[in-house]
Design a binder for these strands. Structure first.
Lengths: 171, 171
DNA sequence: AACCATAATGAGTCTCGACTCATATTTCTA
DNA sequence: TAGAAATATGAGTCGAGACTCATTATGGTT
């Protein structure tokens, strides 16, 4: 791959992440091109379809989250990851709109990472033994979506998470 | 208002509810007109803007929910309402997309109804006294959104709600 | 029944955004 | 450094969907 092609590909991905995070997936490809400093044709050369572009940034995002999760663990790892993710979601409109774009492998890897955090938390006795990975993922998605919508302030977010954690807690 | 006008207004609202519930808010006004059996110009005569149409059905929907909630009460009222709402949400794509359309008065009335259910549940000792209406509403919105996304099956939905209820439960 | 205000009709306008492609430019290789 | 081959450019095409409006139809009234 030519040097300029690789450089542009990176710029486009960065620009797309920025634009879609702020304006949602409905933002135009035109705008991504403008921010990246390339012509619109270049965007379509690298990503033949808008959906391809969305899938690419979603994959990157999920990989980053999985990596983040891998750096945590112990009794509070799940708690920390959960809170961090919800905070990020509130700042990024993206998640809502990425519904429909799927990157199975990347989602699977994130699921594995969360499963591991859950296992450790259960081993440490922080979390009930009778909840599974699917419920935890479902709650994670739900609360992120909720946070995106309501424009929760910090206090409400904390209190809402507290209820969820109480539900997950052992005893 | 002329008789045919009123009849058509009703048909349009019904058709819009059906179409947007199935296809999401991105469905075209054209399709609503077709299902209602009127010309597209008629839809725009009654609702000058697509957003007006969305707001109208959202208002009707929220009013119906508030009424539903008013018929419940006691120790399990909140539990029942919560479950029912999540089940409905799973069948309707609408909710996701209605983000952005706001009908403050109708939302307020639903909030009051939920607040009353919460009060009764707390009085009956079913729910912790230290959670407030905002958290409950936040959880309600979150879980509905989550259910819409993941294509939860019945079991996962039940287990996820169980965690939330455990978090809300007294003791 | 005749009248007209109100409403319905639907082809047409307009905007927007995804995607294309002929042309110009840049990188790399020999 | 000349010559491809790869890449970038951006005006243009295309389709979709929100919204308009001149015309036609209908309901209610005298």
């Amino acid at each position: 791959m030519r040097a300029d092609a690789e450089r542009n590909r990176g710029r486009i991905l960065d620009a797309a992440e920025e634009v879609f995070a702020q304006r949602g997936a409905a933002a135009s490809t035109e705008e991504v091109a403008r921010l990246a400093g390339v012509a619109i044709g270049t965007v379509f050369r690298h990503f033949p379809t808008k959906e391809d572009l969305l899938a690419a940034i979603l994959k990157r995002l999920l990989a980053r989250l999985a990596e983040d999760a891998a750096g945590l663990g112990g009794a509070d790892g799940l708690h920390t990851f959960f809170t961090r993710l919800v905070q990020q979601a509130a700042a990024r409109r993206m998640v809502v709109d990425l519904v429909g774009v799927s990157v199975p492998a990347a989602v699977g890897r994130l699921g594995d990472a969360v499963g591991e955090l859950l296992r450790q938390a259960q081993e440490a006795g922080t979390v009930r033994g009778d909840v599974g990975r699917p419920e935890v993922m479902a709650l994670l998605v739900s609360v992120c979506q909720g946070a995106l919508q309501g424009g929760w302030d910090e206090g409400l977010q904390a209190r809402t998470l507290a209820v969820v954690f109480a539900g997950l807690a052992a005893r």
